[in-house]
Design a protein around this nucleic acid. Structure first.
Length: 494
RNA sequence: GGCGCAUUGGUGUAGUCGGCUAACACGCUGCCCUCUCAAGGCAGAGACCACGGGUUCGAGUCCCGUAUGCGCUACCA
């Protein structure tokens, strides 16, 4: 039977990186096995679900390059089937109506309530309506008395399943309560909906976060009650915050949101690659892997069992996300094929009004050469419009530390650089080697070290203290701009 | 409280059937290269493999216990 997997997020916020990783693993498994990867939006919590969130999930998957097969499924659309299934289980005596009035609970102290209730409760099978005669149950229901529907879990026995990551799992029925399938207002609950939808979508492998591991037993019970084959399960270790706590949008802000990575200049392939390495390791140790290689090497066996820490540094803007993610992105930026990078750079420049139409035509070679030159030391696509601004515009800022270090420390430098400008103006042709020869000659004539002029020129031309080889910069900027910038009074008047 | 899962350097991980002087990547330090910063090359620091017991000639690897963390225990998803 061919593999069918799904990613089933609830649209209650932006796509969390943990969820994104679940999606990735499902997708990899589907592509690896030649199966189908389906997308289902679990929007049954009407209050919290938003259309915007759904859109952000779809965009996020698209950005990561995770294409889904078949039509998108909205779980809310299946509510009638969920209800019907619950009613059928009642008819078959596998579930029962619970007429106990619904308890009012504040969302805040649910956790506390759970603990207290669990402490007090000894017999999970003590519900007075569990064995209510069918006729009476029907009569009360017909009379309009509100009820919830609960699954009738047998007293004895245990449920078992073999998790593809965590191994054999077993749980005694005495640990499992008669779970509610349908709320008294007719609203189907998570465990029911998931199982029904997974059955109707023909899901063969359920790959999801480890937080569902223990609840899986309830779902196994439901599959059995419904007379459906139980799929394979593979639970994934969780992604935790640096303090080993839960990684939440509320506590940790934008670092957990996938869109952040898009907006802050990540190359999708790099982030996908990084995400794949969180909880999974390639068999041959090679970590920089293309999409094709990920598919080729991916296997459920390679998934670890310990939760992974997403190691970002909250108070360090330079290391705002995991070091390895940043490194991976830089690695992609400097090594990926320039033709794949160029469109991303174009989008970045365009968004910052640095794009010129000529870059698509007569200056396309210049653009390619320039991007290839400066990308070597960039970490994100943002760097092209920020640190790299001087390559695309005459309007750029001077870094104060650079001005102090490379210009102000030598009083004669302003005059020297003007002299260098005069010299460069006569160089023909003007390229890497001729500009170098001219500069070195000038340095010798003036009796100063070439390095002094080189570093000064770098700051004059780019506003920065660091960057590519000076002569490459001269070449890329051209004679006119180089000369003009060397003569600029701006940095001297700061 | 109960149940489940996990525990290898700062982080991500490797470590099959027990032989490890514990490997790789990121990060960190130093050197080389050099016009700066990266990249690259070289070298290095950093782990008594959570702790305690047991089995064994031998345990990161098997068994038991403890601790810690995480998850679940809802008419949330």
């Amino acid at each position: 039977m061919s593999v069918r997997v799904r990613f089933a997020p609830s649209p209650t916020g932006y796509l969390h990186i943990g969820a994104a990783r679940s999606a990735l693993f499902n997708w990899l498994f589907a592509r690896k096995t030649g199966g189908k990867f389906l997308l289902r939006i679990e929007d049954t919590d009407l209050q919290r679900s938003t259309e915007e969130s759904t859109r952000s999930i779809i965009e996020g998957l698209e950005w990561l390059g995770l294409d889904y097969d078949e039509d998108l499924v909205f779980q809310s659309a299946n509510a009638p089937q969920h209800r019907a299934a619950a009613n059928r289980l009642v008819e078959e005596g596998k579930a029962y109506r619970d007429f106990t009035p619904k308890e009012q609970r504040d969302d805040k102290d649910v956790k506390e309530n759970i603990a207290e209730r669990a402490k007090a409760q000894t017999d999970l099978r003590s519900n007075p309506y569990r064995d209510l005669p069918k006729e009476e149950s029907d009569r009360r229901a017909a009379a309009g008395e509100p009820f919830a529907i609960r699954l009738k879990v047998t007293h004895e026995g245990e449920t078992k399943f073999d998790d593809l990551v965590y191994g054999p799992q077993e749980r005694s029925h005495s640990e499992i309560e008669d779970l509610v399938l349908l709320r008294s207002d007719g609203h189907p609950l998570y465990n029911l909906s998931v199982v029904i939808d997974d059955i109707s979508m023909g899901i063969t492998h359920v790959i999801r976060g480890q937080d569902h591991l223990t609840n899986t037993h309830k779902q196994v019970l439901l599959y059995e009650a419904l007379g459906a084959p139980v799929p394979h399960f593979a639970h994934l270790p969780l992604i935790l915050a640096p303090n080993k706590g839960k990684l939440s949008k509320r506590k940790h802000g934008e670092v957990v949101s996938l869109t952040t990575y898009r907006d802050r200049g990540f190359v999708p392939a790099a982030f996908r690659n990084f995400l794949a390495l969180l909880g999974w390791s390639p068999p041959e140790g090679k970590e920089v892997l293309s999409k094709e290689e990920l598919v080729k090497y991916f296997s459920l066996e390679g998934i670890g069992r310990a939760n992974a820490i997403f190691n970002f540094h909250e108070n360090d803007p330079r290391r705002w996300t995991d070091d390895k993610a940043l490194w991976m992105n830089a690695e992609y930026i400097r090594t990926m094929h320039i033709d794949e990078l160029l469109p991303m750079v174009k989008a970045e420049l365009r968004a910052n009004k640095l794009w010129r139409e000529e870059y698509d035509d007569e200056e396309s070679e210049w653009l390619r050469k320039t991007v290839d030159l400066i990308r070597q030391r960039y970490f994100t696509l943002k760097d092209f419009s920020e640190q790299g601004r001087a390559y695309f515009s005459d309007d750029f800022d001077f870094d104060e530390a650079a001005v102090n270090k490379n210009l102000r420390k030598e009083p004669r430098l302003r005059e020297l650089l003007n002299g260098l400008a005069d010299k460069l103006e006569t160089v023909e042709p003007f390229d890497v080697s001729t500009s170098e020869a001219a500069l070195r000659e000038f340095a010798e004539e003036a009796g100063v070290k070439a390095g002094l002029l080189i570093n000064g020129a770098r700051t004059m031309l780019t506003g920065q203290a660091v960057g590519p080889s000076m002569f490459e910069i001269f070449d890329v900027l051209g004679r006119d701009a180089s000369v003009q910038r060397l003569r600029s009074g701006v940095p001297w008047n700061l």
